[in-house]
Design a protein around this nucleic acid. Sequence first.
DNA 1: GTCTATATTCAGATAGAC
DNA 2: GTCTATCTGAATATAGAC
Lengths: 201, 201
Amino acid sequence: MTKAEIPNTILGEASSQFAAQGYSAVSMRDIAKQLGMTPANLYYHFKDKEDLVRSSLAYVFEGKMCMLDDIVARYDDPLKRLEMVITWFSTLLFEDEIFSRLLYRELLENDDARMKFLSNEVFQGPFSLLVQIIGDCVQTEDPALLVVSVVSLIIGHVQIAKVFKHLKENKPEYNQPEMLTRHVMEAILRLAKPVDAGRTA
Amino acid sequence: MTKAEIPNTILGEASSQFAAQGYSAVSMRDIAKQLGMTPANLYYHFKDKEDLVRSSLAYVFEGKMCMLDDIVARYDDPLKRLEMVITWFSTLLFEDEIFSRLLYRELLENDDARMKFLSNEVFQGPFSLLVQIIGDCVQTEDPALLVVSVVSLIIGHVQIAKVFKHLKENKPEYNQPEMLTRHVMEAILRLAKPVDAGRTA
DNA sequence: GTCTATATTCAGATAGAC
DNA sequence: GTCTATCTGAATATAGAC
């Protein structure tokens, strides 16, 4: 997928603009302008706009998910490992606007072909890994369902934070990855039974 | 906000297309065409495209949230009431593509002015109501946080279902409002302590 | 209230020079 | 690899007839 160096510069700018404004709201001209190029040059590197969109998605999503493997490799203790994964994901969603917005956009657009591609090529691995990681920490009938709930909690809290901050019930400390991590870890331990306390302490 | 009858027809079509494809991907031509009108006529009813977008949002969101009040009025038992609210919201998100997609779009766009408007005018009421409804069922330090978690679970599950259905861990019965309601109700009772079992039985 | 006709701007995309 | 120049179509929006 890595075509060279110039394309990567283009992909960086393109993904940033696509994330911020949406695919159809961003023109080839907009991207070219920010890069100090002419639109024509973009067509030298990418077949058409759709090609640029797909390449941008791949560029952003690939190379994020692999961080999961690093965390798994670095932490032996299951609970600590789970906590680090949740911290990583919360922080990613809170702080990486490009990743998170592109993710939300894909969830929204719900283009079936692209969804299937992303599910198979990007999300299946991390999801199964998460099922295993969480299965090492707690006992539950349906680990996959628990993982969906955990991911829901994280994604949901981050998204809803945007509304919540305008509500009178808001507390500023809610909108922080650390708080969210603590909250989600607590939730997991309430939703399922900790496994083999000796190993996880 | 109700301008007459023709505008409502326009708003219905516009909100449908905006929900499906996004504001900038839908042209005045597209909307007019589907209505069997010319674009020019749209400009008779709405000042410009932005006016049509905002009016469409108001048209869809207003009149959805008021259903909450109906539920509260209809059910006395706190637990039953909570369950009906969750069922209503799950079903709304699963089945009303226009409402749900416009909601996701607003959460994504995160336009601060529009967000503040929506928070104050649309979401504050239902949110506070939910805090009260859930507070009647369970005891918890921070009811608002629990409500955010519950809403997160619902929104998250519905969104993630789109990915999940392509994963090998999927089970078809997951993608149903009834299942989600049961799951969320169970989660609430695990996350917080039921209050005064006598009243809620 | 809806149309035709049109002004204007901007989009995606290509050919061909350098 | 990047440009100039340009084609073609489509967008928003308006004026003015019916």
